[in-house]
Design a protein around this nucleic acid. Structure first.
Length: 856
RNA sequence: GCGGGCGUGGCGGAAUGGUAGACGCUGCGGACUUAAAAUCCGCUUGGGAUUCCAGUGCGGGUUCGAGUCCCGCCGCCCGCACCA
């Protein structure tokens, strides 16, 4: 063995060896138990970033560990390859989105290979290839046949410059995120998936996902947003009716007005011929929609002059148009109960409407005044006729029963979840497989004509969807009547592509989306790993798509991901500089870590552009002082990024993998540091030196070391299975120290061999290189070391001795020493006697093998 | 406002109700070396000082014993939100 481990030559050599042996190819015919380990596949933006490295390293350690434990492991990788950045690149650089994407994939694949991930590349998928999206079109048609796909007119955010629909997230302060143009609301015919049909199922299913983070389940629960209440109508003074929805029908006797949304038909009707009403409606629509604006926005109303008759009391309640009522939730109209709803309270205060108490802590507090705000809490009904004395829950049921009995309302469940609009007016996506015929209407493309392939000869010189402008592509004959017709030019939301890729990984026949038998063997994914940013959309859509396929009989599995893990981000300090020397600026107070913040234009510099001198930090190029900012997520604009390729080139793949697993618990953020990666590089060499000391001929037993080894193997396995990689890392450091200190013996040689196996999932290249002279075959194919349960327990233990709960001494005794002996030994301790100071012992607590507590 | 999470050394963090600070990083001291790098050894919560005291955001409580459990606060992070 060489003196130093040289990753530059070892890494590529072993990566080639694994390729050659096809070590990580999942065998569908294997009789071993199955394990499907999956990380969220990347968007091929061009470069692998450090967050990918952390994500895939975690999955890789688990996949390699599972193989060692005797599982047939499926650990695939692919590319979420459709999407806007490719089109933006096309517009900005004049390249074709396909060429740009495929080149990025090639680059990123090479990067992943350099990191030594144990991936089954034979199952690689790129969603932009017809072999994939053609099958997606087939699934879309299946869902259409079963009534789960439909078309309807819907208001969308339209960017008039880019000529496209924008998602809500792409509208920033009312402007398109790319063009900066004022976004318009347009009505367009859009394709929808009936996710609301699954609202109940998706909500109930969450309770079965006990290996998902509580946080993600809660987020999905809130997103689905189930609420139960009463929908009923008020008779209006105009002779009409207004339907309202309330989750608090118990408070109906506290209603003091009715409020409708600005675009509610009643408001529209009231506006006819009345400019002042029209003005008010316009004012309501002007309001911003950001959280901050909503928080501070004043409640505004306009009294229509119409009144609504209370179903019990017969009182005439005024009907207001109000800016806080949303048209697209419930019925767009509410009964307002100021005493028990804060918005209604603010509104009633402003317009001097009655604020009645109908829920109180007790019947005696029926007339207690409000303390400047509404009360939403539980209690007993008061001032409420036949409801008086009932609890909130009882009153809700009683009102719903009356309404249903008398026929003016019914109990109803309302969901926040909306159907999933999947139409995008973009080129670089899966073509929606439909044809518009003037005679037959909307006609699905016959399956035998799939895939509907994206044309390659498109131009991006003008804004808008190139598919619309393409001279020939959209012109086809109607498959039903043969008349000239037009292809659908919208493409699918890319979230559709990522809603079933995990199925295609498990099985990829040429002639169908997947083989259900193979899906049954591999799914659900045993461990799914990815970022928290996908907690709602991707994970909800994937759950929906899986359930939809199950409902139409394509597959059996209902939940795609058995266990979910959301890993933290990789963060880094930021370094910023002000372009005016500090002596020329005014100090504005407040001290930063190193410098007071001067006035000037701030710009960010990268870690490579700074140097540290005398405990302060300077920009190398200018000598200007650097402000060391918060540790935040790496991003290009803050220049606090590190390039994984450079790290691999300097320290090798194993060092960066080890860093990704060290220190921070995997669900928390990991602060990157130069010192940290250097430490990892040192440890790689330290292990290498230790492995070089392996001596197959050594003799003699070292019982204590044997125990340490077995205890570490046992604990490391548990830690890896629970993804506690930082703890595994710490244990490996401990064992390394113990082995280094041990005298040569057969035990020590065995310990080195075992340590090598333990680190192999984390540092596979180093492990293979050392294994070549110690073991047989590839360590990638080796088994996880067996644990001897007899060696997990020590025969000597350290027992803590406390006096009144305070530690005074420790005893080293044989394991299993009797309570009596322990007590006697504790009392014999000089330190204990001094602490007791002659006091009388009232009580003795002895926990065998752990502690003795003397209570005086 | 609703929901979720988190507060432990200079930093990242360990700790089935039972020896708080494992392990790593940083810093300091030492060995080796002509020197440096690499490596190795020691120290690194605070105070007093070798056998002590205090200490896990703050205030209470349960317990022989609390970082851990309970109650009440404070602070930070994340998600959702005029959702009726």
């Amino acid at each position: 063995m060489t003196e130093r481990f040289d990753p530059a030559q070892a890494d590529t050599r072993w990566q080639a060896a694994w390729d050659e042996a096809q070590s990580f190819r999942a065998d569908d015919t294997s009789t071993k138990p199955r394990s499907y380990v999956l990380e969220m596949f990347p968007y091929p933006s061009g470069r692998i970033h450090i967050g990918h490295v952390r994500n895939y390293t975690m999955g890789d350690v688990l996949a390699r560990y599972k193989r060692m434990k005797g599982f047939e492991v499926l650990h695939p990788m692919g590319w979420d390859a459709f999407g806007m950045p490719a089109e933006n690149a096309a517009m900005e650089k004049g390249v074709h989105p396909g060429g740009w994407t495929r080149e990025n994939i090639a680059n990123m694949k090479a990067q992943l290979k350099r990191l030594g991930f144990a991936l089954d590349w034979s199952r690689e998928i790129a969603t932009c290839e017809p072999e994939y999206y053609g099958q997606e079109q087939a699934l879309f048609l299946d869902l259409y046949e079963h009534g789960l796909v439909y078309r309807k007119e819907s208001a969308v955010n339209w960017d008039p410059v880019d000529q496209t629909v924008l998602a809500n997230e792409q509208v920033i302060d009312g402007r398109g995120w790319r063009s900066g143009a004022l976004v318009e609301k347009r009505k367009l015919s859009q394709w929808f998936l009936k996710i609301t049909d699954f609202a109940d199922e998706l909500l109930d299913g969450l309770s079965t996902l006990d290996k998902w983070p509580e946080k993600v389940r809660t987020m999905q629960e809130n997103w689905i947003g189930k609420s139960q209440g009463l929908q009923f109508s008020f008779d209006l003074s105009t002779g009409g009716k207004v339907e309202v929805y309330s989750t608090r029908p118990d408070t109906i006797f506290g209603a003091s007005f009715v409020a409708v949304a600005a675009d509610h038909p009643i408001a529209q009707g009231a506006a006819e011929g009345r400019p002042e009403v029209q003005d008010f409606i316009a004012l309501c629509k002007q309001g911003g929609t950001t959280a901050a604006e909503l928080e501070t926005a004043e409640k505004l109303g306009f009294d229509t002059g119409i009144t609504a008759k209370h179903p019990f009391s017969g009182a005439q309640l005024p009907v207001y148009i109000a800016n806080f009522v949303l048209m697209d939730y419930g019925t767009g109209a509410v009964m307002a109960v100021p005493g028990h709803d804060q918005r209604d309270f603010e509104f009633a205060t402003k317009y001097q409407l009655p604020i009645a108490r109908v829920v109180a802590a007790s019947a005696e507090e029926a007339d207690k005044p409000f303390d400047g705000e509404s009360e939403a809490g539980d209690g007993v009904l008061v001032n409420s006729d036949f409801l008086n004395g009932l609890s909130v829950a009882e009153a809700k049921a009683a009102v719903i029963a009356r309404a249903e009995g008398e026929g003016w309302g019914e109990g109803k469940t309302v969901w926040r979840l909306r159907d999933w609009g999947v139409s995008r007016q973009r080129y670089w996506g899966t073509p929606i497989p439909f044809i518009h015929c003037e005679v037959c209407g909307v006609v699905p493309v016959p399956k035998k004509h799939l895939p509907v392939v994206l044309p390659e000869d498109v131009d991006f010189q003008t804004p808008g969807n190139p598919l619309v402008r393409h001279p020939t592509w959209k012109h086809v004959d109607c498959p039903q009547c043969g008349h000239p017709a037009r292809r659908e030019t919208d493409t699918l939301d890319t979230f559709v592509d990522s809603s079933w890729y995990f199925l295609r990984f498990a099985s990829q026949p040429d002639d169908r989306p997947f083989d259900p038998a193979k899906i049954a063997e591999w799914l659900p994914v045993e461990q799914y790993i990815g970022g928290i940013e996908h907690a709602i959309l991707h994970l909800l859509y994937a759950r929906f798509w899986t359930r939809a396929l199950a409902r139409i009989g394509k597959i059996e599995v209902k939940e795609p991901f058995g266990s979910l893990f959301t890993q933290g981000m990789v963060t880094h300090e930021t370094y910023s500089v002000f372009d005016i020397a500090p002596e020329n600026t005014t100090q504005i107070g407040g001290s930063h870590e190193h410098w007071d913040k001067p006035v000037g234009r701030e710009y960010f510099v990268s870690p490579a552009e700074i140097e540290r001198r005398d405990g302060k930090v300077y920009e190398i190029a200018t000598g200007r002082p650097v402000i060391v900012g918060r540790v935040i997520k790496m991003s290009k604009s803050k220049k606090n990024v590190v390039d994984p390729d450079e790290i691999v080139a300097t320290y090798g793949a194993d060092a960066i993998r080890w860093f990704m697993l060290s220190d921070s618990p995997p669900e928390r953020d990991l602060p990157w540091s130069e010192a940290g990666i250097e430490g990892c590089g040192r440890f790689v060499q330290r292990l290498w030196r230790l492995f070089a000391q392996y001596d197959a001929a050594a003799t003699g037993e070292d019982k204590a070391l044997d125990r340490k080894v077995h205890q570490t193997v046992d604990a490391a396995a548990r830690d890896i299975e629970s993804l506690g990689f930082n703890k595994t890392v710490a244990r490996i450091y401990e064992l390394t120290g113990a082995v280094e200190k041990a005298q040569p013996s057969a035990s020590r040689s065995a310990a080195i061999r075992t340590l090598l196996l333990l680190v192999s999932p984390m540092m596979p290249h180093l492990a293979e290189e050392a294994w070549a002279s110690i073991g047989e075959g590839l360590i990638a194919d080796a088994a996880w070391p067996e644990v001897d349960p007899a060696l997990l327990v020590d025969d000597e233990v350290t027992v803590a001795v406390q006096v009144k709960g305070k530690l005074r001494d420790t005893l080293t005794v044989a394991k299993g020493t009797s309570k009596e002996d322990l007590e006697a030994l504790a009392l014999a301790s000089e330190k204990v006697q001094r602490a007791l100071d002659g006091a009388e012992i009232r009580k003795v607590i002895v926990v065998p093998d752990r502690l003795v507590n003397l209570v005086a």
